[in-house]
């Protein structure tokens, strides 16, 4: 790790000021992504702005329309929340599949979304439910938030405050874990609500999380696994590595999508 200045602001405004002042400032949430990168000397921020003392960024609020989760809310809290389990069980299920207990006890939803790892789980839920990401500056729909590998619409001094997930009629998430990292080799989130059907895929796309429109159209007509049986996702633009070829990932999207639809609650 390189030397850096450590800051622990009390509120969002102060955090933004510190970020603006820094040459290469970074927000620290659960540290599960940022700290390993710093230890490996792959990231070298000059200033770390630790959000842990900022009030109001953590916690879960549920209404009949939406579940709103504070950016600093840990995976373990989403997984264990009775409200999430009741309103969007697929979301609680997804959180339970992230990493291991140590990671779930530190990692946060805001950190996961801001990081936008192409194999992370939460981006699939955000896109698959049509979530709204609220920052200190604006509200961004998930469709406009994810911009590619590890890239989002966030500005350097923009802080995610909360994420709002509309409550669907039904939703399901199926993840096929990478045997080594246990991130998603392919993860598919499906949801059905009065605004329509969404199918979001993580782990497979070279450009990060994406929607499968063809499946959405078919499922809008008939929300059943059978309805998408014949749909083949092309292997083009799929990630290929030692853990799976592009063809294999494309194939798994179909399998996981059908299983997610069948499991949707």
């Amino acid at each position: 790790m390189y030397a850096f200045t450590y800051e622990r602001p009390k509120n969002v405004d102060e955090a933004v000021k510190l970020l603006k002042k820094a040459k290469d400032g970074k927000i620290l949430a659960g540290g599960q992504t940022l700290l390993p990168a710093m230890k490996l000397r792959l990231a070298s921020p000059d200033t770390i702005v630790d959000l842990s003392r900022v009030k109001g960024l953590s916690g879960i609020k549920a209404s009949s329309k939406a579940v709103t989760i504070g950016a600093l809310t840990k995976h373990i809290e989403v997984m264990g929340s009775a409200e999430v389990q009741k309103s969007i069980p697929a979301l609680a299920h997804l959180a339970s599949l992230i990493g291991d207990p140590a990671v779930r006890n530190r990692g946060t939803i805001g950190g996961s979304l801001a990081n936008n790892d192409p194999s992370a789980d939460y981006p699939a839920a955000a896109l698959g439910l049509g979530a709204t990401i609220k920052t200190n500056k604006r509200e961004l729909p998930a469709d406009k938030f994810f911009k590619g590998l590890f890239e989002t619409a966030l500005a350097g001094d923009e802080i995610i405050e909360s994420v709002s997930f509309p409550v669907p009629e039904k939703a399901g998430y199926e993840k096929f874990p990478n045997p080594a990292s246990r991130f998603a080799l392919v993860g598919v989130f499906v949801s059905k609500s009065k605004d329509g059907v969404r199918v979001a895929v993580t782990g497979a796309g070279e450009g990060g999380v994406f929607r499968v429109k063809e499946m959405e159209t078919a499922l809008a007509k008939d929300f059943s696994a059978k309805a998408i049986e014949g749909i083949k996702v092309p292997a083009k633009n799929m990630i290929a590595d030692i853990h799976g070829t592009a063809e294999y990932r494309a194939h798994l999207i179909g399998v996981m999508a059908r299983r997610a639809v069948a499991a949707a609650k």
Binding site: P179, A180, S181, D241, I242, H243
Partner: peptide
């Protein structure tokens, strides 16, 4: 048999250089 395998690319870089890629 199921999980592990050290893998080098053609340039001799170890692709499985951490537990993120080397499956224990």
């Amino acid at each position: 048999a199921l999980l592990e395998g050290a893998s080098y690319n053609a340039d001799g870089q170890l692709i499985t250089g951490s537990f993120m890629d080397y499956a224990m």
